[in-house]
């Protein structure tokens, strides 16, 4: 396999996939997945709680295994791939980043809501000082107009981010929305541009191809769609498609197929598909990790999870506001019981 890559893929199953399995990854699973990805030639493997470093919480779900152990495990089997970590300022801190770097993490992806880039300054600076490659990760990109996105990307670039991602956390962007965003960033930002999709509207692959067409060179995928909601752009499919298009990823297609089938598929309790809940995430523009929480709240309060997600979309709730799910569910249930009494 040649070293020349047109596109650099980051595999996010061991981070975004944490949402899909309620943060239950084990050291053994991470060792197997990371080793296989390394052997297949995937350049970056992200490992963290779904909500980033220090995400293990009552708000988002407690990790079965301390993520630092998972990061250490991944590093131990990755002699070619670099291990990346996610950090959301307001949840994780510089201290957490330092611990991850000490264990051998080489890339820091610092994520903020698309309009709040300035909270990433201290973390991007710290990552640079630690000698890490840095990514500015603008989440919920569909919620801001293009000029706002450009302004925020420029801030992250000025802090020293090596790459800036358009992150479609809700899987709500349509291909034309991806096109105009990536095009604008290519025009106004000098660093690498990346795209992170979710497949809630079955558009992750189409959106990714549009992003690449417009000049994105950093792409996220999750094997077997092991990511929040309906998962991300399916990595093994993506490398096959790009291979057919003559675009070099440096990743072995057969090895990806094998690890998807033999190692990742057994981790999933149910195969990832576009259920009505994940479809509603994309349709209402709601953060993909809300899916499981909404399902739980719906059954606790005896209501339809779609009603919760649609209401959250209306209220313009941002990533991380999982506490709003129970709050809104309680409100809907209360309103319903009042109706019934009448």
């Amino acid at each position: 396999m040649t070293n020349a890559r047109d596109i650099f893929i980051t595999e996010v199953a061991l981070r975004d996939g944490s949402h899909a399995i309620a943060h239950q990854f084990t050291v053994d699973q991470v060792l197997k997945v990371a080793k296989a990805l390394n052997d297949a030639g995937v350049p970056y493997i992200e490992v963290s709680h779904g909500d980033g470093l220090a995400g293990s919480s009552l708000q988002y779900g407690l990790s079965r295994t301390n993520e630092l152990e998972l990061i250490e495990a991944a590093v131990s089997v990755a002699d070619k791939s670099k291990i990346a970590v996610l950090l959301l300022p307001g949840i994780g801190t510089v201290k957490d980043l330092k611990e991850a770097a000490k264990l051998g993490a080489k890339m820091a992806r610092v994520a903020t809501h698309v309009t709040e880039a300035d909270v990433s300054l201290q973390h991007i600076h710290a990552a640079k000082e630690l000698g890490m490659e840095t990514v500015g990760f603008l989440m919920m990109s569909h919620m801001a107009p293009v000029d706002k996105l450009v302004e925020q990307a420029k801030l992250m670039e000025s802090y020293g981010a090596d790459s800036i991602y358009v992150v479609d956390s809700a899987g709500a962007l349509l291909p034309e929305g991806v096109r105009e965003r990536i095009r604008a960033l290519k025009q106004h930002v000098g660093v690498n541009i990346g795209f992170h999709g979710h497949n809630n509207l079955s558009l992750a692959m189409a959106n990714t191809l549009v992003a690449i067409e417009e000049g994105a060179t950093r792409i996220d995928g999750s094997v077997r769609c092991l990511g929040a909601g309906a998962g991300n752009t399916q990595t093994e499919v993506l490398v096959a498609v790009l291979d057919r298009m003559g675009i070099k990823t440096g990743v072995d297609v057969y090895k990806m197929m094998d690890l998807a089938e033999e190692i990742v598929a057994p981790i999933l309790q149910t195969p990832q598909e576009i259920t009505r809940d994940s479809l509603v995430l994309g349709y209402a523009g709601v953060y993909s990790s809300f899916a499981l929480h909404a399902k739980r709240a719906a059954s606790k309060f005896g209501i339809d999870s779609r009603d919760i997600l649609i209401e959250l979309g209306k209220r313009k709730v941002v990533g991380g506001q999982e506490d709003m799910i129970v709050d809104v569910a309680a409100e809907i249930a209360k309103a319903k019981s009042v109706e019934t009494v009448r």
Binding site: G90, I91, H113, T115, V119, K316, V318
Partner: peptide
């Protein structure tokens, strides 16, 4: 103890909300 802070840009601005677990 553990603390998380989230900034929400919705307009009109939301009131401060806190959840304690």
């Amino acid at each position: 103890g553990k603390a998380i802070i989230i900034l929400n840009p919705a307009e009109p601005p939301i009131l401060m909300r806190d959840t304690v677990y």
